[in-house]
């Protein structure tokens, strides 16, 4: 049994090696590289775990095509080892620039050293790596989740009087957290907490993870509604949990957006639709359409220009009125 497993495992790894080797060979022949002036980019995506991610992938692929950049794209299906393998094959293929969204924060030093030794610049998108050696990558392009939380907090402080829906002089907030330990969940909670501290009437009375899913958000919200009659505001770390909360609030016989105000982060299409219907009151955008900014960065890096080590994605916030305007041509 063990022997069989070993044989199977080595067969698989051999074939994988053969595949990468083939890829390397064929590319060494075909690649015009810098000679024809066309930039070749290797992009290792996390996976296709959400609508946000799919929009992210689409944006990168479409912009690369429009800008005439030769994009080599791999989907790591949420596994770090797949991503490392993809980056290694990009190094072998001698691409001009490597970009990737790291699945996890740690364990990248070795493969990034290899890229550095091969003189291939690396750009991180959307998620950071936790490494002391910042020379391993040229730039990190992505959202600042703390700022997103701050924007949500700012809105609540500005609209505190309106948000006290039951008029008891206190704004009781329940928070639907993202996946425990995930950077967006930690940072969005932190930024929000910092800003609402400015107003003593605002208080987070309960906080629980809804795992970034609608089902999770709905079940947690159901429980909050049962144990507390005085909830004024829901702050959800993403649109999906907010959408789940809307269903729970409706089932409790209350009106989402009026009896209980809802603030979320992301601005995906379903969330924007609910916002335009007034069921959500405020959405902080987390923009997945990094394509144009990424290609711009890549060109500069390949040309040897200096770039900022940290580039923020362009994003804003939406009120119901703004949502109505942009909803028609929303891509994701």
């Amino acid at each position: 049994m063990l022997k069989k497993t070993l044989i199977a495992a080595s067969a698989i790894s051999l074939s994988a090696f053969a595949l990468t080797a083939c890829g390397g060979d064929s590319d060494a022949d075909s690649k015009g590289g810098d000679s024809d002036g066309k930039i070749t980019m290797g992009f290792a995506q996390v996976g296709a775990e959400s609508g946000w991610r799919t929009a992210n992938t689409k944006s990168i692929q479409e912009t690369a095509e429009a800008e005439g950049i030769d994009l080599k794209f791999t989907d790591a299906q949420g596994k770090q080892e797949n991503q490392i393998q993809a980056i290694r094959s990009y190094i072998q293929q001698k691409v001009d620039v490597i970009a990737f969204s790291p699945v996890v924060e740690t364990g990248w030093d070795a493969v990034l050293q290899e890229a550095k030794a091969a003189n291939i610049p690396v750009i991180l998108t959307d998620r950071a790596v936790d490494s002391e050696d910042t020379s391993l990558y040229k730039s990190f392009l992505g959202s600042d989740f703390v700022v997103e939380g701050e924007r949500a907090g700012d809105w609540l402080v500005e609209n505190a009087a309106d948000s006290d829906t039951n008029g008891d002089g206190k704004v009781n907030v329940v928070q639907l957290e993202g996946t425990t330990g995930a950077a967006p969940a930690i940072d969005r909670a932190e930024g929000f907490a910092e800003k609402i501290a400015a107003d003593p009437t605002i208080e987070v009375t309960a906080s629980q993870t809804g795992d970034f899913t609608r089902d999770g958000g709905k079940q947690v919200m159901e429980s909050f509604l049962q144990s507390d009659d005085t909830i004024d505001v829901v702050y959800a770390h993403n649109d999906d949990m907010g959408l789940g909360a809307i269903e729970a609030i409706e089932a409790a016989g209350k009106k989402p957006g009026e009896d209980i105000k809802i603030i979320t982060v992301d601005a995906v299409k379903d969330g924007m639709t609910a916002l335009s219907e007034g069921k959500i009151n405020f959405i902080v955008e987390c923009n997945p359409l990094l394509g144009p900014q990424l290609m711009d960065l890549a060109k500069k890096v390949v040309d040897g220009e200096e770039v900022e080590a940290r580039v923020l994605t362009e994003e804003g916030t939406f009120t119901p009125e703004q949502a109505k305007e942009v909803l028609a041509d929303r891509q994701y």
Partner: peptide
């Protein structure tokens, strides 16, 4: 049906 949606990743 509970959330009127399907998220193939987490369902």
């Amino acid at each position: 049906a509970n959330t009127n949606s399907v998220n193939a990743n987490s369902l």
